[in-house]
Every structure is written in C-alpha cells, then in structure tokens.
C-alpha cells in the first residue's frame, strides 16, 4: 500500500503577527514555525494505518522554503518512510488551486492508495487544498474526518457535522481524506526515532518541475480588524460602584428597563 500525507508549516499561532510591506500577507520574518495542527492528525493517522497494514510505504510531502524540512523531519521521526520537499520560497503567494495542482502533479503517476491532508491550514484556512487535489486526481475525498477505519480495501470514516450529528461515509481506495481535530492524539516523536530520521530519504524537488497552472484568486489585502472599544472598569467605593452599574444597565441595556 502506498500512502501520501501532505503537511504545511505554519507560524506558531501565539506569535505577534505583523503585515508584510505589500499588505497582502503576514510578515514571514522572526516567527516560530510548527506543523499545521490538522496536519499532525493526518500524519498520525497515516502512521497508524501504516502499522496496521503489513506492507506500506508512507511519503510525507511539503511545499515551502528550506525551513519546512525541519517540520518534515518531525513527520519522518513520527513514522513516515520518506520525504518529498517541494522547494518553493514563494509558496505563501500561491492560491489553493496552485498548491493543489503541484501536489496532484507530484502524485499523478505514483498510484497512492490513500492521501491524507489536514482539513485546513491554520494560517490560510481555505480548506480547499485537499478536495482540489482529489478532484484533480479524479478520486473521491472525505472531508473533516474524526474517525477512520480501513479493512479489505474499504474505507469507513466519520465526519462531524453541525448540531452534534455525525455522518458515516464509506468508499474504496484510492481516496483522499482531510483530517479534523478529534481524529486522534498525535504521538511525540521518540528521541531514537528523531535520530533515525536523519538517515531517511528527503528528496528536494524544485517547484518549477510541478507548477504548471496559473492562480485563480489572489489575496488583495490582509488587515487587522478594527479595535472595538475595550471593557469598562468602574472605580470608587462599593456603594458608588453599584449606583454606577445600575445607571449603565438602565441606560445601555434592556435589563433594568
């Protein structure tokens, strides 16, 4: 069985974000980077599947500058067999369609039985890449899965819907799945595996070899939402505080009409 898992490196979401000079993306400098959270679930699921089936070969793919290799090493340490780094310093400028086309061009003649991706990236959040890869390759996709099982070529996945409803979906390989929070608890890579990951294959492919389409959308502007007025802190003696509060509740709300 051949499995592919696609992962993206995103900034730590606790970073202090600044806008870039063009005003259409965040400034990439001085950020701490990590694996997109949803992609961790994808890697974990792919590794679990690999251990479940007897013969499996698990490739991890990432598009981006050299620094993404650090995160790919983590995926290799978690249990992926080989890495394909699609080297692209400008990946952040590409739209979901271009990214999906690059992945599809890589996967096209490799006959992957299963492809796992995150359900969305934490920094762009389009949620499009997985489904577009599946469409381009002409295979079914199941999105936002929270449970996964594979037996005798049959895939059974649970999707989480609004209102606490879940849906059970069945399909057969080849297929693509996008992974949601709750699917699993990603393992910590063990130290011996971190050391062994050094010796695993990590191919670098120039993006130009796979990037053949033009973008279909562009981010015109990125901006911070306007600051809403902050909270109100009342000061003074207790009795006076109560009076102030009652006045505000009367004037500004319907609670004490």
């Amino acid at each position: 069985m051949k499995i592919l898992v696609c992962i993206k490196q995103v900034p730590d979401m606790e970073s202090k974000f600044k806008l870039n000079s063009e005003g259409n993306w965040y400034d990439n400098s001085d950020l701490a980077w990590r694996m997109n959270e949803y992609d961790e679930y994808a890697v974990e699921q792919a590794v679990q599947l690999k251990t479940q089936v007897d013969e499996a070969d698990l490739t991890v793919l990432s598009i981006g500058p050299d620094r993404v290799k650090e995160m790919m090493k983590k995926a290799l340490a978690m249990g992926c067999d080989r890495g394909a780094h699609i080297s692209d310093d400008d990946s952040f400028k590409k739209d979901p369609y271009e990214i999906a086309s690059i992945i599809a061009a890589f996967a096209k003649d490799k006959e992957f039985d299963l492809i796992f991706t995150g359900m969305q990236s934490q920094d762009r959040g389009s949620g499009q890449v997985g489904v577009l890869v599946a469409e381009t390759l002409g295979i079914p996709s199941i999105t936002t899965i929270v449970d996964f099982a594979f037996a005798a070529g049959q895939i059974t996945a649970k999707r989480e819907l609004e209102g606490g409803i879940k849906a059970l979906i069945k399909t057969t390989a080849p297929a693509l799945l996008t992974c949601q929070l709750g699917l699993n608890t990603p393992r910590y890579p063990t130290l011996p595996n971190i050391m062994k990951a050094k010796k695993k294959e990590l191919l670098s492919i120039p993006v130009a070899e796979l990037h053949k389409v033009a973008s279909k959308q562009e981010t015109a502007r990125m901006y911070f939402p306007e600051k809403r007025g902050g909270g109100l802190v009342l000061e003074g003696a207790v009795g006076n505080l109560a009076d102030q509060l009652i006045k505000i509740l009367k004037d500004k709300t319907g609670v004490l009409a």
Partner: peptide, 14 residues
C-alpha cells in the same frame, strides 16, 4: 542542529 531543535520542541511539548 535540526535534530537538537526537534528534541527541544518535543521535550518542551511533553
């Protein structure tokens, strides 16, 4: 090195 960083991140997360 990449390994040292990965070890740091792993132990920190743990």
């Amino acid at each position: 090195t990449e390994e040292q960083k990965l070890i740091r991140d792993t132990v920190r997360a743990f």
